[in-house]
């Protein structure tokens, strides 16, 4: 019996060792890979994003934090190291800030809306055109804003080319009669510049989206009883919506924060927010520095908020799934 069990024990010992060896064979090598594959794909994506995000976070987020510290007096040359919201108070109580905010929003909204509408029309018309259409669209894209501004000044200012041509044709009595299109109160020059610059950009994006839409969908809509206008409204436009949203979002963000265009072409009395920031920042009075930073932070905050609102409005069914709900209700009954 004991001999028997001893033999069994010995055999078991050997088998156990074998098993142990087999168990750990190649495990160390594969373990990391195995763990990585076991991760949730969403988490994997975040992990892969980490290097890029940390650089942006450090530079941009760190900068923002530093700015925040300066604006509330915790860090900085003039501050005494104690917390104070004086800069924000000063900004929010000044009439100039609210006027500037209004003007900035007005320019950004009108310029974005105008260029988006024009671009949709242009893209739909250019859809069937060949490659030359895209090329023609791209033509103005590499021109710097400053060059565009100079061109608009040369063309549209009271002593500009257009004014002189009209004068020499006898259509206006003097350059004083030429409508003010530059540095005017309505900021027409700024709007004209942004439309000129952004229409090709949005059109380019929309053309790419349009070319990705199956042409049979339009045919199908027509054959189901949609007129040409209904076909555009109910099929083309909804399918174009993601492109429209992302393109106009980029334009809105850019126009809202743009400095040089309203600085050179815009109205002089209410200034846009970026100009206000610039003037406060370059003011000889160093006390204005914290005000400038507070202004800049508010500008960023407003910009981000409006983008969030915009995305929400542009998302599928922002006010609840009204139509979808009615379908579900009917399904239940």
């Amino acid at each position: 019996m004991s001999a028997k069990s001893g033999r069994w024990k010995g055999r078991w010992k050997g088998r156990w060792k074998e098993h142990w060896k087999e168990h750990w064979k190649g495990r160390w090598k594969d373990e990391w890979k195995w763990r990585w594959e076991d991760l949730n794909p969403t988490f994997q994506a975040y992990l892969l994003l980490l290097p890029a995000v940390s650089i942006v976070g450090l530079l941009f987020g760190g900068g923002l934090l530093l700015a925040l510290g300066q604006s509330i007096g915790l860090i900085g040359i003039m501050g005494d190291g104690s917390l104070s919201l004086a800069a924000y108070q000063q900004v929010l109580s000044s009439r100039a800030f609210w006027q500037s905010l209004q003007l900035s929003l007005y320019i950004a909204i009108v310029a974005t809306a105008l260029s988006t509408f024009l671009s949709i029309g242009l893209a739909v018309m250019l859809q069937r055109a060949g490659r030359w259409a895209s090329f023609a669209c791209q033509l103005t894209l590499p021109i710097p804003h400053l060059v565009g501004i100079a061109g608009i000044l040369l063309l549209l200012s009271p002593s500009g080319l257009l004014s002189r041509v009209l004068f020499s044709l006898g259509l206006i009595a003097s350059d004083q009669n030429f409508p003010l299109l530059v540095n005017d109160r309505a900021n027409l020059g700024v709007l004209i510049h942004f439309v000129w610059k952004e229409v090709p950009f949005i059109t380019l994006i929309l053309l790419a989206v349009l070319r990705g839409i199956q042409p049979e969908l339009g045919m199908q809509a027509r054959a189901l009883g949609a007129g040409p206008w209904q076909c555009f409204w109910h099929v083309t436009l909804p399918l174009l919506k993601p492109g429209i949203i992302s393109a106009s979002l980029i334009v809105f963000g850019f126009v809202f924060g743009s400095f040089e265009v309203p600085f050179l072409l815009g109205s002089t009395t209410p200034k846009t927010l970026p100009i206000l920031v610039y003037e406060a920042f370059t003011n000889v009075d160093l006390n204005q520095r914290s005000v400038a930073i507070a202004l800049g932070l508010m500008l960023s905050l407003i910009s981000m908020t409006s983008i969030a609102i915009y995305l929400w409005l542009g998302s599928e069914k922002p006010f609840g799934r009204w139509f979808g709900r009615s379908w579900e209700a009917q399904n239940k009954t």
């Binding site: 045919m219 199908q220 809509a221 054959a223 189901l224 949609a226 099929v235």
Partner: peptide, 20 residues
């Protein structure tokens, strides 16, 4: 025009409107 013809067309692969 096609919308006034009282006909309905079904294309290959169904081709449903993806946004609806």
């Amino acid at each position: 025009p096609p919308e006034g013809r009282d006909m309905a067309l079904v294309l290959q692969k169904g081709l449903l409107f993806p946004h609806l």
